[in-house]
Design a protein around this nucleic acid. Structure first.
Length: 268
DNA sequence: CGGGCCTCCTGGTAGC
DNA sequence: TGCTACCAGGAGGCCC
């Protein structure tokens, strides 16, 4: 699930509920998901500290711990989620909790994940990490406009779906939201990136911003998204919200891809 | 560089 | 009802 919009919602949740509270206790159960830090070191670095601020880049969420102790890094894989609850609230469950912070005001923050493809890491320098990972720019970065979008697509010879999903090219989009963007533009997911017309690139860029914003606004709840979106129809009726035709499902770049055979014939 | 395939892990579900 | 096979919103590695 967790693509850019999901992680953005997690960030907003964290910012609204977990900053500037003293961490009283830490529970780590993250075998195989720890990067550049051991469970023991993680507890030591978090306990007694406060979360000072957060940053998101693509699908990664970074949380600065204390004054200059470094950043906790969370990547949610396919099934990770971040959940916060106050003292008088119920937790959504304690299954699959890989990391839980208990604050001294009785509130909690938990990272849950079932298929353990996520990452819990520690970085001293967020920008250095982004560079090491060779992550592309984030679509929501200030300064990332149409000009920059054209630039990252330059010289890419693959299929547009694959291009947009490659984190080294553009950081944040995944399988579902790329399908949504291409649907809104009426473009075939296998269209060749290097053959797209300038206007098409412009449309993709616009749709990308529109889709991300709408998804975040809907708190990534498909039921809260515009009825014209493809997303709510991936599961369930699987019919095109525009023309009513049965959606086509096909592996593109190895990922299950939903698109409308009627409305997404455009190749350029 | 790009495409296709495999693998990591685990739970849900379609289909028998 | 019970079991199995397959699949899934990520990503890295390998081979061609």
């Amino acid at each position: 699930m967790p693509e850019l919009p999901d992680v953005q919602v997690y960030k907003e949740t964290l910012d609204a509920t977990a900053l500037h509270r003293r961490i009283e206790d830490v529970d780590v159960d993250a075998d195989g998901m720890l990067y550049d830090v051991t469970a023991l070191a993680l507890v030591r670095r978090l306990k007694g500290e406060e979360l000072a601020e957060s940053r998101r880049h693509g699908k990664h969420l970074f949380v600065r711990v204390g004054e200059d102790n470094g950043w906790l890094r969370l990547h949610f894989g396919m099934t990770g989620e971040l959940d916060a609850w106050e003292k008088n609230e119920e937790s959504a469950g304690d299954e699959n909790v890989a990391l839980r912070l208990d604050f001294d005001d009785g509130s909690h923050l938990a990272y849950r994940i079932t298929r353990k493809f996520g990452e819990i890491g520690w970085v001293d320098d967020v920008d250095a990490f982004i560079e090491e990972r060779e992550l592309g720019p984030d679509p929501l970065d200030s300064g990332f406009g149409l000009r920059e979008f054209r630039k990252v697509l330059e010289g890419r010879r693959g299929m547009i779906k694959t291009t947009l999903m490659t984190q080294e090219i553009l950081a944040g989009l995944g399988n579902v939201y790329v399908d949504e963007i291409l649907f809104q533009v009426g473009l075939h997911p296998e269209a060749a990136t290097d053959e797209l017309e300038d206007d098409t690139v412009k449309e993709i860029h616009r749709a990308m911003n529109r889709v991300i914003k709408a998804a975040v606004k809907a708190r990534v709840d498909a039921d809260e998204m515009p009825a014209s979106f493809l997303l709510p129809h991936r599961t369930g009726d699987q019919h095109c919200p525009k023309c009513g035709q049965k959606l086509k499902r096909k592996a593109v770049g190895g990922r299950p891809t939903y698109f409308c055979p009627e409305d997404q014939q455009r190749e350029r």
